[in-house]
Design a protein around this nucleic acid. Structure first.
Lengths: 207, 207
DNA sequence: CCATAATGTGAGTAATTGCTCATATTCCAC
DNA sequence: GTGGAATATGAGCAATTACTCACATTATGG
């Protein structure tokens, strides 16, 4: 490993051909991670899997972490898209139904390529430590805030920023846990919903 | 890296001297992780830090992962001890106070050497994948179950095994999040408690 | 003390792997 | 066509690092 690290890729993909190469690289990286885990994930394997040369990988990604980060971003974008759709689709629905839709969106996003996404989430922490924070987290908060604002009269306690953060932390952890233990989507969403609604509505104090 | 991996240490520490060496190795490993992170964590650095030779490390730990696992076990034992004490101390107290004590125990255990423990928790997943599961998780569940059993009449919904699992998942995630964001212990415990009690008592449905 | 076991040493090995760069090939503008 | 730019290649370099082993040192029991 060299001491210095490039932080910018050599080239930006301009022609159609190179844009395809970038897509090939990303998908090859995903497949290597799925098939061989972080353990067997290296740039040579990615190149081989994609049927291209290592050099091409480094034409468009300055280093291995940048490639991994691109995969993470790709996953986060897909997740956000699903959540956005769920929020949009829940217009006019009850709060419980709306929350259910969001939870299901998250479960689906994770379930699609479960092993891959689990690895990516684990890597996220390590990679964010070095580089700057993500904006995906910010948008997710906004989406949840928007949904809750529509139902603010039904919610006992005020929903401030911290509360939204907590809701996201809780569902993320529970979704991960569900995937890890191969829970059915029905069971998983029921349990996540119980946690979220419990947090929002607060405990009964009527005994 | 050799293809084959030893799975047992060469020697068991018998004399006082070697038991001290094992302690030195563990503490050196912890300090390296704290100071240089996973990045700079290697067995040569551990030996240097401990003022001993690499060979000694491999006398008592078959490989690097075994050393890391020993650190994880050490942390889990400390956590369990604190939780055990909290459960014992909460005899006769109200449910809210009891839960508060448990949550604080967890927060304290993590806060003690926050950076180290965060790294260890992240590594736990990766290492458990290869080897078998832990028994620490089992005991934690039992402790929580025992506490809740004392208050079963106050709790609206039945507390089955899944519910206890969820409670642990939720608090663990929120404690991690709190440490990561340098929340005060007061704020953190308040938020975790809100989540836990909400989950236990279930949402109000009185509107 | 002496024999034997336990413990400690650390230079060196073998394997891995991120990444480069000189070169070749393909594409596009004119 | 032709020249230059974009793209692709892949053998090999350089650095890292987990781990070994032949040997030295220290403890223990008799």
């Amino acid at each position: 490993m060299p001491a210095k690290r490039r932080t910018k890729s050599r080239k930006q993909p301009l022609q159609q051909r190179s844009r395809e190469t970038v897509a090939v690289i990303l998908e090859a990286a995903a497949r290597v991670l799925e098939a061989r885990g972080l353990e067997g994930y290296n740039t040579n394997a990615v190149a081989e899997r994609g049927g291209i040369s290592v050099g091409s990988v480094y034409q468009y990604f300055p280093n291995k972490d940048a490639l991994t980060l691109a995969l993470i971003t790709r996953f986060e974008d897909a997740l956000l898209a699903k959540v956005r759709d769920a929020v949009a689709a829940s217009e006019g629905k009850s709060l419980t139904v709306s929350l259910n839709l969001i939870v299901r969106a998250q479960l689906e996003a994770h379930a699609e390529r479960a092993r891959l996404n689990r690895i990516l989430e684990a890597e996220e922490d390590r990679l964010r430590a070095a580089s700057s924070g993500t904006s995906a987290a910010g948008e997710l908060k906004e989406l949840v805030a928007a949904l809750l604002a529509r139902h603010r009269r039904e919610i006992a306690r005020p929903v401030d920023d911290d509360a939204i953060e907590d809701l996201i932390v809780i569902s993320r952890a529970m979704v991960d846990h569900a995937l890890q233990n191969d829970l059915s989507q029905a069971a998983a969403s029921r349990r996540v919903l119980r946690a979220i609604e419990g947090y929002l509505f607060g405990p009964r104090r009527d005994f």
